[in-house]
């Protein structure tokens, strides 16, 4: 392998991804080539900085914070929610209407007699009725004999 080919494979060497024969060839080249050896050295320094040592320490606080946030917070319900209002109101209205209909069906109709009809039926003059400025004879109206002087 020439210098250019080896330089292309230096990172594969750093990753341990080369077959044994190529690895040995490149390692022996590094003994003689300052440029390639320098490149590997520089890369090692970059790796040290970016490597796993740069990761933060484990944090239980972080774990608990995440777990606390898993439960969605309850949003306050709106004061007037049309859907909730309808869900509450409709069954009650239906129940009330049904009760009203049932009671109307059960109640027997009563005969209502008008006062005028009653008075006319009991009047000796039959159905004739005249206006008089005098006060009516209450006894006559209710079937009692007229007081004779």
């Amino acid at each position: 392998m020439d210098h250019k080919t080896i330089q292309d494979k230096l990172f594969l060497l750093a990753d341990g991804e080369l077959p044994e024969n190529e690895r040995q060839a490149i390692v022996s080249h590094l003994d003689d080539c300052g440029e390639c050896a320098g490149l590997i050295l520089q890369w090692r320094k970059v790796q040290e900085t970016l490597g796993p040592a740069s990761l933060p320490e484990p944090s239980e606080v972080f774990v608990f914070t995440v777990l606390d946030r898993l439960e969605p917070r309850r949003r306050p319900e709106p004061i007037l929610n049309p859907r909730r209002l309808a869900a509450w109101l409709l069954p009650r209205l239906s129940l009330g209407l049904t009760a009203l209909l049932i009671s109307l069906m059960l109640i027997r109709p009563q005969v209502v007699i008008a006062t005028e009809s009653l008075l006319l039926a009991r009047s000796p003059e039959g159905d004739s009725w005249e206006f008089s400025p005098e006060s009516p004879d209450v006894g006559l109206l209710f079937g009692q004999p007229r007081d004779t002087p």
Binding site: L55, F62, V63, L67
Partner: peptide, 22 residues
Amino acid sequence: EKDAFATLVRKYEVRVRGYCMT
């Protein structure tokens, strides 16, 4: 088992936080 999720958080939090912070 919501608490089981804690196992996953503990396992990966260092790597995820590390990636995000960097």
